[in-house]
Structures are given as structure tokens and as C-alpha cells.
Nucleic acid binder design. Structure first.
Lengths: 244, 244
DNA sequence: TACAGTTGTCTAGATAAACAGACAAGTGAC
DNA sequence: GTCACTTGTCTGTTTATCTAGACAACTGTA
């Protein structure tokens, strides 16, 4: 064959499907922290796979730090899943997660000025061909990278924003240096997809991982859009909580 | 080996990773409808895989109806991606999608009464052990299933809701028969995970697919929670748009 | 100590995925 | 028609995944 992809050929290894299901179950609280997972044999039976396949799934969860296996004893759930990231009218990274995790830091990966694409120009209220500032940042919570974000802003207005961000480690703080003391999230789009090269690298993900992609539009209080952001979250480390 | 899962072993086939990346690119507008994809050879080169692997990825997208290959000509993008489902203070399925698709219908898959789990009882303001009504529904837009939802409500108050839903095909309409003319979405959580057995079946997905899981809390106008819902969307058919 | 139940490790074979190369066949431009 | 470029189809080979069975090693309990 070597060709032709039918519906039977899923393209996702069995052990990974089992691991993903187990992670979901742990996440939903079906296996709370400190509880025991069923035995390898039993998990294999439940999912209709060989014990060795179930074993590979468990090994994967162990490598994520979600469970711990103990020879002769069984597998114990060590922590339960995802951080919960609030998306609201005032969406701020550090304040949103500060009660769930000890440390959150953001780093600047790179910055450049480029000509605005038509869609970005339209959203930012610029003329096509105007210059936009593009920042690439990564956020790390409790020593694990959780999100990779691209930011777009009017290059003329926000000259030096990258330095301000690097100095403060916060977009909100950097905006303040440009006279924006408050801003509002007008809209956020969320989708899920397979991780690309950049996400694999900067979020330290294994190939084939899922990312949640949140595209946000921020406005000043007068309703003018000044900031577009496209944030990719490691799907197995976070959930988004929308508050109205 | 047959054991041990390292970072090199991703558990997701290469052709699927390529297909997912291409789908994302099409979705972001990098390949608009009617445009041509690069050749199989070129795609293989770009992703560092064999032409046959690239070919399998394209065949997969073709089976999804996203592209069409023509012998001697190339591969053409036939439609671009996802529906956009708005999540807002008043989140309603049919009104949210009606401008994007001709027909939306919802069907009842099943219903049962069961004892409330502690967490569901707490959210609905019931006593642990009280009886909750559980509905399972599927929604189909333009002949493709897009979401599978589980609903939880107070069984005492909403006796007969299943019939009302079946008669109207709408939760909003069914609620009206119970004196709820208006209701508000208080909170929504969004995460992404691998599809489980039920999702594969009812959303007609190939194994290993990704689902977006939105868990919502609806209240009456006086702020009392009366309805919990857990909706699973096929991630490659929809994005969620949060409006504040 | 004996035991049931668990994880750890090995061997072996079957199936699927991926790579590599070759050539046929369709298409549009010249 | 010729040409460059494309997809379609074939033959292999190599590597990864999954299954199967066996037995060792560890743990808590009787």
C-alpha cells in the first residue's frame, strides 16, 4: 500500500490515544491526586489493547510528571492536570495565574518590524503597507513553558516596546510606558490544532502535541484596537476559563 | 525496545502531523480557497519528509473535503476550514451559527436520571444524592456533526425536558416551556484533548482526532445556576469566538 | 513465610508507517 | 509535438508499533 489513507488508519499511535484518554480522566477528577490507577493489565483490558501498549501510555504520563509508577505497588496519580487561565474583559497573564502557581515569568524571544498584512492592518486600523511591530514571547509558570505568544502593534506608536517588555517582563507594564494604563479584551478566538515547529521548540513539547490557539484583540478604553495577540498554549497544561 | 516512550517517539504519524500543519495553514488563510498547494515533492521538502508521506497527508485532507487533487495539475484548496462559534453572555447554538451555515439541527441521543455527583450537585445548588437529569445531544451543521453535548439539570424541576427538546430541537426553546425565557452564560472552560469513544462515533471522527471541550454554566437572570453543559467540538471543524 | 497482585524486562513475530527509487500518465505552455 | 511539471502507481527496504507469552522482582497482607 504505502499510499491511501482511510478512516481506519488514524495516524495516532494506540499508546498515545490511551495516554490522552487517561490524562483526560485524571483531569476530570476521575483519578484524583494520590489515588491509584488501575493495573497495566486492567487498563489494557478496558481500552482493548495489549498490556505493553497500556504500559507505554503510562510511561508517557509518567514522563509528563502526571503519575508515578512503583514496582510491585502500582501507579499513583501525583498531580492533576491543567492550570486554568481566565479570559475576561481585562485579561492579564500574571494576575490570572498568580493564585495557581508560585512563579510566572515572560521572556522576549524576538522582535521585528515588518509590513502589515492586509488583515492585520485592517484590525489595527492602519493603512496596508504601514509598519507593524511584532513581538514573540514565551511565558513560563512553575518552570514549565505554558504559552508562546506573537504580538502585533503599530510600529510608529510603540517604538521601544520591546525594551520596555524586556525590562518589566510584562506586556501590561510595558503598555503603561506608552500611556496605556488600562485596556480591554474585545474578542478572543480559540481553536485547537497540532503543534508546529516553533511550538514544539519553545513549549518543549513532544512531536504530535496539541496546542490551544487563542487569538485576542485588545482595545483602549475608547474602543480602539491597539494590540493583536496570538497565543499558543500547551493543551495538556492548561484550560481556558471564559468569564463574562 | 517495545517499551519506553521518549521524546523522539511522538506517537503521531508523520503524515498526520503534516496534514494538521497544512490544515492550519489553510485555515489561517495562507492557502485561500481555489489556490494551489505546493507540489507533493515541495511539501515533502518543506517538512523534511518523503514525497509519499506528504502524499498521504494530502490524501487525508482530500478525504476531509478540504482539498482536491487533479492528476497532472496539482492540489487545489476547495474550502477553508472552520465554523466560528460565538461564546457570549447569551450563548445559543442556532443563532450563533445561523449566518455561517444553511441548516443546523440538534438531536437527542439519550437521557437518563441519575444521582448527582458531588461536584455537579454543588454547582447546581442541589444536595448530594439529589437526582439530576442528564441529556446527550448532537448538533449537525450542514450535514456534518459538529458538537456532542451533555447537559445536567435538576431532575425535579425539569421533568419532561427531554420531550420538550425532542419536540423543538432546541434547548432554548425547551427551557421556555419551563418558564425560562432568558438565561445567561456565567462561565465557560475550554480545553483540548484527544477524542474518546463517544466523540469518535457521534462526531464521525477518525481515531486520534482532537476535540475542543467547552464546559459551560448557565444561570437564570437572578444568577442561579440551573444548567451545566459539556460540549465537545470537532477541533478541525470549528473555532470558538469569545465576545465580552 | 507464603501468597496474590503488581511492575520490570526479556524474546519473538505480525502489522503499519516511512523512505527510496522508478516509471506511467495527465496538464498547460510553448 | 515537445517540454517541464505535476499526480498516480508500482517495487522494494527499513524502522516503528503492537501483540503475545514468559518469568523475574517488588509490595503489602495474611
Amino acid at each position: 500500500m504505502a499510499d491511501k489513507v482511510g478512516i481506519s488508519r488514524s495516524g495516532v499511535a494506540l499508546w498515545r490515544q490511551v495516554a490522552d484518554q487517561l490524562r483526560g480522566a485524571i483531569d476530570r477528577g476521575e483519578f484524583p491526586p494520590a489515588s491509584k490507577l488501575p493495573s497495566e493489565f486492567e487498563i489494557g483490558r478496558q481500552f482493548g489493547v495489549n498490556r505493553h501498549t497500556a504500559r507505554a501510555a503510562i510511561a508517557h504520563l509518567a514522563s509528563e510528571g502526571l503519575v508515578q509508577t512503583r514496582h510491585g505497588l502500582g501507579t499513583i496519580v501525583t498531580r492533576s492536570g491543567r492550570l486554568s487561565y481566565p479570559i475576561r474583559l481585562r485579561t492579564r497573564l500574571s494576575t490570572g495565574l498568580s493564585d495557581q502557581v508560585a512563579s510566572i515569568i515572560s521572556r522576549l524571544l524576538g522582535t521585528q518590524e515588518r509590513e502589515a498584512t492586509p488583515s492585520i492592518a485592517a484590525e489595527l486600523g492602519l493603512r496596508p503597507g504601514d509598519s507593524v511591530l511584532e513581538l514573540e514571547t514565551v511565558s513560563i509558570a512553575a518552570d514549565r513553558p505554558i504559552s508562546l505568544a506573537t504580538h502585533w502593534l503599530d510600529a510608529g506608536r510603540f517604538k521601544g516596546l520591546a525594551d520596555a517588555f524586556e525590562a518589566t517582563g510584562s506586556m501590561t507594564a510595558a503598555f503603561r510606558k506608552f500611556g496605556i494604563d488600562d485596556y480591554i479584551r474585545r474578542e478572543t478566538s480559540v481553536l485547537a490544532e497540532g503543534a508546529g515547529e516553533a511550538e514544539l521548540t519553545h513549549l518543549d513539547l513532544p512531536k504530535g502535541s496539541i496546542v490551544l490557539v487563542a487569538t485576542g484583540t485588545n482595545t483602549t478604553l475608547d474602543g480602539r484596537v491597539f494590540h493583536l495577540t496570538r497565543t499558543r498554549f500547551a493543551a495538556d497544561r492548561i484550560e481556558l476559563r471564559i468569564e463574562h
